[in-house]
């Protein structure tokens, strides 16, 4: 059998995730897993999806986005609103979660589209700072938002208070401004998370290995050269950016529905950076690397108690060291020099 390298890579990635899922299920069944870690399983899946989708922007498209948590926030809040308001329409819980994730993904992709059209005209550091600004704007706007529901349907209010929603008796406040959402139905399960991860991998890997994916990577490697052979820059940049935003939205919905309360400030700059750390440590452009990095870096602090205080410090140091080692000419030359020396030794 003569498989292509990309096919092998894809098969390896899928197998990796499936094996990890089966092992985790085995551990749950045999009771060999701590309760805190068990509660972390669905968020880990959400983080994996976040990392893979950010890798699409940073690794494949080559534009640094520092506002990825903003899309997660949009997905989380819209997804929860959808799930709460559809509670009577769709009684089946997994289906309701899927609908919630779809709503989250479509809202996040809409936001990504409207942010992307103007913002992707910029490049490099400017794009990074503008995505950061967009993330902060989203956080700010969600903090000022009030949404409630009664028999007339959904009520929205902005910058006021929950009483301005004018709900009738028996109505329910869903998003309560700075207090966020409380009493979220816990719909997320590990299995649903696993399915979302598989779906994300399917989308991202097929996109990367398609004609569009090659165009996106060509833009990353040399925008001017790609433009000169007739690749439409805006179209492909938007394609990658919006896909990434949509997946982040779905992950946000999954993430929110694992906790009983969610506030907008949870999805701040720090969360964006955390996901960036996963992507960088997993390897820019390396999909299965992001999966492994997100999973390991979420599980590891749970395993090492007392290490938690130093976690972010260690992340920061590792981030710097990885960047210097992989980008400095002197460090880059080490493997070749070692190889030469080893070969020289074997020849003698």
């Amino acid at each position: 059998m003569n498989l292509q390298k990309s096919t092998l890579n894809a098969v390896f990635t899928y197998t990796l995730v499936v094996v990890a899922f089966v092992v985790a299920q085995g551990l749950i069944k045999s009771g060999n897993i701590s309760s805190t870690l068990r509660g972390q399983l669905a968020p880990i899946c959400a983080y994996i999806v976040m990392a893979v989708s950010l890798n699409l922007t940073v690794g494949i498209l080559g534009e640094l986005s520092l506002g990825h948590a903003g899309f997660m926030s949009v997905g989380a809040f819209s997804g929860v609103v959808a799930c709460v308001s559809l509670a009577n329409v769709i009684p089946l819980e997994p289906l309701r979660l899927v609908v919630g994730m779809l709503v989250g993904a479509s809202c996040a992709s809409a936001v990504g589209f409207f942010i992307g059209i103007p913002v992707l005209r910029l490049g490099g550091d400017y794009l990074a700072i503008v995505t950061l600004a967009c993330g902060e704007i989203i956080k700010n706007l969600v903090t000022c938002m009030y949404v409630g529901m009664d028999s007339h349907g959904l009520h929205f209010s902005f910058l006021t208070s929950a009483s301005a929603l004018q709900l009738e008796k028996g109505g329910k406040v869903i998003i309560n401004g700075p207090m966020g959402i409380a009493g979220i139905p816990k719909l997320s399960t590990f299995t649903m998370g696993f399915m979302l991860v598989m779906f994300t991998l399917f989308i991202v890997m097929n996109l990367v290995n398609s004609r569009a994916g090659r165009a996106i990577m060509a833009l990353r490697d040399n925008r001017i050269a790609a433009e000169s052979v007739g690749i439409p820059v805006t179209k492909y940049k938007l394609m990658a950016f919006v896909t990434s935003a949509a997946l982040a939205g779905a992950a946000g919905a999954l993430y929110a529905m694992n906790f009983s309360t969610v506030v907008a400030t949870k999805f701040n700059f720090n969360t964006s950076i955390l996901i960036l750390v996963y992507v960088v440590l997993g390897g820019l452009g390396n999909i299965w690397g992001s999966v492994v990095a997100a999973a390991v870096l979420t599980v590891l602090p749970e395993m090492l108690r007392g290490f938690n205080d130093y976690r972010m410090l260690v992340y920061a140091v590792v981030l710097i060291i990885v960047m210097i080692v992989t980008n400095n000419a002197r460090f880059k030359a080490i493997p070749t020099r070692l190889k030469k020396r080893l070969r020289g030794a074997s020849n003698v």
């Binding site: 940073v58 080559g62 640094l64 520092l66 490099g124 550091d125 990074a128 950076i273 960036l276 960088v280 820019l284 972010m312 410090l313 992340y315 920061a316 140091v317 981030l319 710097i320 960047m323 210097i324 992989t326 980008n327």
Partner: peptide, 14 residues
């Protein structure tokens, strides 16, 4: 520049 920017973010976090 992407590598330098990420290093700077790492430094800020540090």
């Amino acid at each position: 520049s992407l590598a330098v920017l990420i290093t700077a973010i790492g430094m800020s976090y540090f």
